[in-house]
Design a binder for these strands. Structure first.
Lengths: 153, 153
DNA sequence: CTTTTTGACTTTCTTTGACTTTCGAAGTAA
DNA sequence: TTACTTCGAAAGTCAAAGAAAGTCAAAAAG
């Protein structure tokens, strides 16, 4: 569902990454191509291609500048181990969502499972009188990771 | 027979759902179309298109936001409806486990999903200083049921 | 009373633009 | 040649404006 220009740009970049582990973009050219202001590219990059979702952004300013976008590969058990670390502290719903999305991207869980998890760590599910949602959220994600680890060599 | 504007809007939405399992609405456009305030749409949605009547609502705020309305088919919807009732009160881990087992038996979820859910509603995941685990547990199960409802054909 | 209608206020996400920083190349002086 | 300066072409930042949807409770209708 490409609802906004940001979504369209996201898709475009995402599919450029289908065949390559990294790509080099020109911010201005991309912006021109999509008839938007250059900083919109930054917005897409910052909201969609985050480190939490396994992307690394490098760039250079000035003449012949560029933006290099790399998709990180990581073996599954390593990934799960790192994810566990993320769950050491209380987590916001946003953080948890990104983690779940990441698991989906890595095919550690199915789309259905991702949706289940997302709704479980939502504010609606966890909302409680005292403000410890974030703690519970990371507890839950920790258990999920432990459970998933059983299926990984 | 259409006493109120709410009834008219209800009918309109209902007939949009005749051909599709889900529709996407724009709250503002609908409100404009029916010359009412936007929050009237929420009122109609909240009073008529409830989970108990077999509807699921998802939405997104912000620029190019939307409201997605899904109708679930009633094969399994009775079971889910009853399950929802179970989640009206706080639940022990044992009760939740039984509910999950039931879902598995009915093939509404896979074994893997059942295991995930079980670890999520375990004391380990939910344990928190104050004793409201059971409330959170039923909240979670309620959201899970709502999520599963989207997949029911 | 209960249900519906209304609107002020809030939250979330996106779009835009003015301003800043960085880099490389080209030009200039010693 | 070497070192310094200038200029323009990138990319970055940040906050304001815009565009949705959500909430809640008061007022109105039935």
């Amino acid at each position: 569902m490409n609802r906004s220009i940001s979504d369209v740009i996201e898709q475009f970049i995402m599919s450029s990454l289908d065949d390559n582990d990294f790509i080099e973009l020109s911010r201005n050219d991309l912006a021109k191509f999509f008839s938007c202001v250059p900083s919109q590219i930054n917005y897409v990059l910052n909201t969609r291609f985050t480190i939490n979702r396994g992307f690394v952004i490098e760039s250079q300013r000035g003449g012949s500048g560029y933006i290099k976008l790399t998709r990180m590969h990581d073996n599954d058990s390593n990934f799960l181990k790192n994810s566990l670390d993320c769950c050491a502290k209380p987590m916001t719903a946003l953080e948890a969502n990104q983690l779940i999305q990441n698991m989906l991207d890595k095919k550690l869980i199915s789309e259905r499972e991702a949706n289940l998890l997302k709704c479980i760590i939502s504010a609606k599910a966890l909302n409680n009188p005292i403000n410890i949602d974030n703690t519970i959220r990371s507890n839950i994600m920790r258990q999920v990771i432990i459970e998933l680890s059983k299926n990984v060599k």
